[in-house]
Amino acid sequence: MIPLWMYLVVAALLFCIGIYGVLARRNAVAILMSVELMLNAVNINLVAFWRYLAPQDMSGQAFAAFVFVIAAAEAAVGLAILLFVYRTKRSVIVEDVNLLRW
């Protein structure tokens, strides 16, 4: 049987990879993909905790389902904003798109 902490370590690693992507990548699409990685790390944690600590209670799975909703909404709106920015600025490099600076 795999102990709980192994799942948690992998999830933490994935989360950190995601954070690195968000901080270090310049392309906005890549940043959005990294955010998806982070959300998935969260989901691993939720399901692992549910399985090991409260398997009778459905909260863990329900929360994971709601994270799916958030991820979907984030991807849909995020990418739509990206398309809009690309139309006006002809770029998806985040450093070129600083229209929110003022």
């Binding site: 690195y20 990548r25 990418l79 398309l83």
Partner: peptide, 30 residues
């Protein structure tokens, strides 16, 4: 959806640098 966005924004391969200049700070932090 992501692939659609990649195609629509013609950012299939990012020209220039993949990472920004502070990437090593991010790496250490992470």
């Amino acid at each position: 959806l992501i692939v659609f966005a990649v195609m629509l924004t013609r950012s299939m391969t990012s020209l220039g640098e993949v990472r920004n200049r502070q990437w090593w700070i991010s790496a250490i932090t992470v």
